[in-house]
Design a protein around this nucleic acid. Structure first.
Lengths: 340, 340
DNA sequence: CTGAAAGCGCTTACAG
DNA sequence: CTGAAAGCGCTTACAG
């Protein structure tokens, strides 16, 4: 069942069928109507491979994330796919599993598929892996890669406001001993969150020494361990801001285990605002990073490149600003805390 | 940059280049080696659209889920994509958002892309939406659609063992007043879970009247509401099994809110065993439904059809058996419960 | 407004 | 073991 057969059955040329299929206005309405009827009757479905080969585009975007099991990504993928579908674009989805060697493989597979654009939504990107895409002039958009945002389109995240809101929230509740539970230092997103924390602490007059920052690895367990360490201090913090929600959950668990009540005894703030944040007990106050905004911005940048074929200089990109969402894990600081 | 240029530069025909590309053993190793070198040198990437057009396959699978934000799906998608990548198959991912009209659109888009198979991993499938795929002889595999498993390949889930394990666990802990928090009755997966619950209750000698089943809508909030209702009974249950984890979380919240302790005062068992189950406080005992197994089975069935071109009769499909995972939300029943 | 024909970049049966 | 050539199913510049 190909265009040939449709043409034959309709008594027109394949050119006409093709024009009808593509909504060309150069076809007489009556002819078009007739062709459409035949198409429906024959249940004809055009062959996209042929079309793509001919027009040199695929109407396909690639979407690469590091790990779909990370609850941060589903909403991003969901929205990205939604936007693409609305434009008749399909998305090939792949993941790297945090393995940077796999990024190169993913990119290659996508380039072979002739995709019209690639969204690389991983926290770290190994630049050489992108080489093939630039060489093939396949548009690429990255996530929060300040280091590379001159060479590639990038969805930038500005952490300052979110952390400032969090800090103000805590200081207004009387907290001054506030600790930041950070993550792996080589991750640029972590570096920037940490910098935003410090800037906000300084601005609010609660910046202290090095012990204001404690290290985790972004997983629940590390949050628990960190909190246990903090509770052994002679002056444990009255509030903890974690670099992500997962660690905040660990902090919550450790606080519970130590017999502390949240938020009466300790306030906890997470980052990301994953769906699970509101399922915690108490529901977690968290700095919300919008996956929808990221998806929308990534998609629109790719779409722009796709249409204008201008891989080079970006239009002014919209930054994404995380915002504080206040829930039940933060409250007024006790003036004097008893040792647990 | 096409195969032509590679051939020219290598001083061979395009046929030879193509053979090297496809690992044909009919090429002299020395020639092949030389061609490979030229390919690498030129950084040549074959055009998949052309290849697909020619060979009539796309090495592309479609994966349709109802809602990627449902924490059930990420692991399934992840594993499916992993298996596909290992076979050189890419996956186009789409979602229906529980909208059955969208299923038809998704299928059409995938058929246009010439996919070699479609995994429809939604809880409900509207049969007419699949018509196009059968007509085009595109292999399809469904998830737990007993109603349709004669016409289509299907990954079947057998709930009996999991529920039996859960029931035995509870009765061995002394529970006899056990309620099942069910979901929308039109969902066949819910009907079957409910039937499995009843069968297990009967087998364990704790089957009671209609009030042993209470209705929810699979969301957290409905679990909370249901538990509040249950607690108003003059003889509230000592254990609740929820048809999914999300509702179990709601039950947990309501129990906490009512001043009950879990598991000392009430035992709670979820279903699915989502990643968040173990983050709860206490960590949730749950019946684990393996997303990996589902993905593996769906993929292997598709792969089989893809290779043998035998869309018809299935090889004996492996059933997926959920298993009970005991954590902290279940404990020995109190012999006498005080009213809350 | 419509059609004949070239060509997108591959693969493969055929011939040698 | 290698090459010349046909053809997969479309789209589109060109001619009318």
């Amino acid at each position: 069942m190909d265009i040939q057969q449709v043409a034959q059955r309709a008594g027109v040329s394949t050119a006409t069928v093709s024009r009808v299929l593509n909504g060309s206005n150069k076809v007489r309405e009556k002819t078009a109507e007739h062709v459409r009827r035949v198409i429906a009757e024959l249940n004809y479905v055009p062959n996209n491979s042929a079309r793509n080969l001919r027009i040199g585009r695929s109407e396909l975007f690639g979407l690469i994330v590091s790990d779909i099991k990370n609850p941060f990504f589903p909403e991003l993928i969901d929205h990205f796919e939604e936007l693409a579908a609305a434009q008749g674009i399909d998305v090939i989805f792949t993941h790297t599993n945090y393995n940077s060697a796999r990024l190169a493989t993913c990119v290659r597979r996508l380039v072979e598929r002739n995709v019209d654009g690639i969204a690389v939504m991983t926290s770290e990107v190994d630049e050489p892996a992108l080489e093939l895409s630039t060489q093939r002039k396949v548009p690429v958009v990255l996530l929060n890669q300040t280091r590379l945002n001159r060479k590639y389109r990038d969805v930038m995240i500005d952490y300052s406001r979110g952390f400032h809101e969090a800090m103000q929230h805590l200081t207004s509740l009387g907290h001054s001993n506030i600790v930041f539970l950070t993550g792996p230092q080589q991750l640029s997103s972590i570096q920037r969150r940490q910098a935003a924390f410090k800037a906000a602490a300084k601005k609010c007059g609660v910046l202290r020494g090095e012990d204001q920052i404690i290290l985790g690895d972004l997983r629940v367990e590390s949050g628990r361990v960190a909190m246990e360490t903090l509770l052994r201090r002679k002056r444990p913090p009255t509030a903890v801001i974690a670099a992500n929600d997962l660690m905040a959950v660990g902090v919550l668990q450790a606080a519970n285990a130590a017999g502390l009540r949240v938020p009466e005894d300790v306030s906890i703030i997470g980052f990301d605002d994953l769906p699970l944040a509101m399922m915690m007990h108490p529901p977690l106050t968290s700095i919300h990073l919008s996956r929808r905004e990221i998806a929308a911005e990534a998609f629109s940048q790719l779409m722009q490149l796709h249409k204008h074929r201008a891989p080079g200089s970006p239009r002014a990109p919209r930054k994404v600003h995380p915002r504080l969402i206040v829930r039940g894990s933060t409250a007024r600081a006790r003036s004097k805390r008893k040792k647990a």
